[in-house]
Nucleic acid binder design. Structure first.
Lengths: 215, 215, 215, 215
DNA sequence: TATGAATGAGGGTTCATTCAT
DNA sequence: AATGAATGAACCCTCATTCAT
């Protein structure tokens, strides 16, 4: 699943990098306000700080902007997540830290994540597989943390259960953004993280809950 | 939050009803293929079986179609869900049945639910509160089932925990559609329902899992 | 070589016919001034007496206009030519009449013919074979007149010579338009017709010229 | 009718000469594929082996390129033609040689000639008179050969007939390119030259044809 | 009530030309 | 003298909406 190549008329790779960063930043700002379809290329250019002509020196079509946005958001989410994941904790605490970090990152990048979620369906057909792969890779990071817990004997889950759990953690993070109209009115991020962690790990059935100082 | 009034030039309420049903059916079919923005009003009219002129006799703008779609999908989901919820089961089994029914309904109406999820952001500004309210109402159905469980002493949860849990059940249903590219490749609906029910109720921490014959 | 189908959103065939006639008329007027590429679709619409939106109800692309122009010009040239060709004359006189008529028609439709000549290369790739076929059909009309002369014993030419001669007559007509900057300064149409007829039939070598009262 | 001055930022006349030669060569290659309007200045620059910035050091506008192309093609046609025209033949043979040489040169430079023909109308308004003059000059070369024949008594033609004949010879050459889709399928260059020469000189009316060994 | 032709604002994209380096 | 990134006017085309029939 090769990275989709976004065409550019400009030769200087560093410049391409820089301009595309401006572009992604501008585009996210607009997409989160009005969505991909209601945002015009002219607006993207202006918000990015250059002319419409210049915009098209760095992309082949409007959809490429969306692709660059998604690509960049994934990259940043992963980088931030990995930088938060120290190796100091072990066992279930490790897992709790993963959840907490994920939620933190998503909270920090709410707009970006939301945009990605809501507009991904408008990606150019060829780009979709690549983006889904990125999403899988994200889930895999979580999955591997769960797997470690299993190997260390803190959890005893089947392969399927591990996959399911990883999905639930990811979605638990994402819903913080796409249901924010409700969740963020009811909970602070800390409350949300604490509650979700408990329900994810121990479920809701009474007697099973392990008291946990942290949460 | 009053139901948004969709304007019509036609007097006969029954006719309006009938035409709008055709319209919603046609629109869903198109939206699930190409999304709201890429679908033209002409296409909607054609798919619905009448002319573009006639379409505009029953709506005020393209966005009204989306609103009608969302409204209709919510209504149908709720009706179907309620018709599945008999009062024969009690206690935790009752809750499990709610989850199972919800997932079943969502599976049956995948395309509609997905369309609603992905396009809701394009609703006319005035319609959004009403639709969010509908979403809240849906969550409230779940919430009330959870609450019943609490009152009956099967669960002991705070108000916040109840809300959180209801959200998680709803999202557990929805993710079956919006992550179907992954989930539906890995699980059948029954497997998914079974696994999710267990994780939702008992979490993943080993020793806590209550064996349950059904799931 | 099927006639290229030009798409239209409008159902009424008569209306299509009428609008396309307006369109062709407007387009020819513009193309002869500024050429196909320098003429904008908006200008064509305006000159044709309707809006840009309406223009695109009757064509699929700008190139379709050019195709319609070419098609229409050929049709009219052929019709006019055929209506001029009575069956009263025979022998070489018949041939002279054909030449005279052809030149007359081309003179009448100078602008149209010139536009067709100069812009044909911009036709949509799929349309080119059809248009070349039309050109061949035109040449064939001439050719058949020549052939009749041969059969009747007034000329004795090989197949190749007949083809060549037909081409020369056709081009003799066309050059009246595409070299008009020179020819029409030096000759009137009658002079031109007279001179060309003589040179085409008898060449230039002195002693061979048959005195002909008419020319 | 002065040669149009094409502006350049560069001082060194030799360099200008060299660069413009590259440019014309590149441009012809592109124009014959896609026509003048569909060729971009960037493409011309690239095909010529330098940058778009450099291109504009040697011309004032895109149309100047077309002018340079036309100018250069005329020059080369004339040079080649003159180099083919030895003074060894006399009388009608001289004329036949002129025709043969002209056709040969045009055949050798088909693409260039065709480009010039098809795109000349896009020349900058100020350049057109100069180019027409060149075309007249070309015709004059032929005309003078015809005139010589007359003076020597091999032909007896009026001034008008001479002009007409010269035009016919020129167009006889050009049509080899602009009707090549038909002519070059039916004839080899030699066949074409032979047939045309005969029809040009002796016409088609039977008894007049002088048998000629060469053709 | 139903139709569908007409409209034109507005969108994505191109490309000739400029100018700082 | 050479480069190529930047510019923005202008192009082709789409489509939501209207309105006369």
């Amino acid at each position: 699943m090769a990275k989709k190549k976004v065409p550019s008329m400009v030769k200087d790779q560093q410049l391409i990098q820089r301009r595309r960063e401006q572009m992604v930043k501008g585009a996210v700002a607009l997409f989160k306000q009005k969505g991909f379809h209601r945002t015009t290329t002219r607006e993207i250019a202006k918000e990015s700080g250059f002319s419409i002509g210049t915009l098209y020196e760095y992309i082949g079509s409007k959809e490429d902007v969306l692709y660059l946005v998604c690509d960049s958001v994934y990259e940043e989410v992963r980088n931030r997540l990995e930088s938060l994941l120290t190796n100091e904790t072990v066992g279930l605490d490790r897992l709790k830290q993963v959840i907490q970090s994920l939620f933190k990152v998503i909270d920090d990048m709410q707009d970006e994540v939301l945009v990605m979620y809501q507009e991904a369906k408008s990606l150019p057909k060829e780009a979709l597989p690549y983006v889904l792969e990125k999403e899988n890779a994200m889930t895999a990071i979580i999955e591997s943390a769960v797997q470690t817990c299993c190997k260390e004997g803190h959890l005893e889950l089947s392969e399927q259960e591990i996959r399911m759990f990883a999905h639930n953690i990811m979605v638990g993070g994402h819903m913080w953004t796409f249901r924010r109209w409700s969740l963020q009115k009811e909970f602070t991020l800390d409350e949300y993280t604490s509650l979700q962690t408990r329900q994810l790990l121990y479920g809701v059935v009474q007697e099973n809950i392990k008291v946990d100082e942290k949460f």
